[in-house]
Simulated scan of single mutants.
Amino acid sequence: MARFHTRSMMAAVLAVALSGSLSACGGTSQSSDGDGKRITIGIKFDQPGLGFKQGSSYTGLDTDVARYVAKKLGYSEDQIVWKEAPSKQREALIQNGDVDMVVATYTMNKARSKVIDFAGPYFVAAQDLLVRSDETGITGPKSLDGKKLCSVTGSNSAQRIKQDYSSKVQLMEQSGYAECVTALISGTVDAVTTDDVILAGLASAKGNGQLKVLGTPFSKEPYGIGIKKGDTSMVSKVNKAIEDMISDGSWKKAVDSATKGTGYTPNSEFNPPTKIGDSSWIQDL
Rank of each mutant, 00 (worst) to 15 (best):
A125D: 02
D100M: 07
V65K: 15
A126N: 08
T107M: 11
G60P: 12
W82R: 14
K53C: 05
D33R: 15
G42N: 03
K110L: 10
I43L: 13
V65L: 10
Y58N: 10
S57P: 12
K44Y: 08
V99M: 06
K72F: 00
W82G: 05
G120D: 00
D64Y: 14
V69W: 06
G34S: 08
K71E: 02
F45I: 03
M101Q: 09
Q47P: 04
D62G: 02
S76G: 09
M101N: 06
D64G: 09
S31C: 12
G74C: 02
V65C: 11
Q127W: 03
F52M: 12
K44F: 09
L130Q: 01
D134M: 09
G51D: 06
A104P: 08
T136V: 13
V99D: 00
Q54M: 14
D33H: 11
S133T: 10
D98Q: 10
S76E: 07
I41N: 01
V124F: 00
V115G: 00
R112V: 15
S76R: 15
Q79F: 06
F52V: 08
L130W: 04
Y68W: 10
I116R: 12
E135G: 05
R38Y: 08
G55K: 15
S87A: 13
T28C: 05
V81A: 09
I41W: 04
K110C: 01
D46I: 03
D46S: 13
K83D: 00
W82F: 13
A66M: 01
A111H: 12
D117T: 05
Q47R: 14
R67W: 05
L73P: 02
T28L: 10
L93F: 04
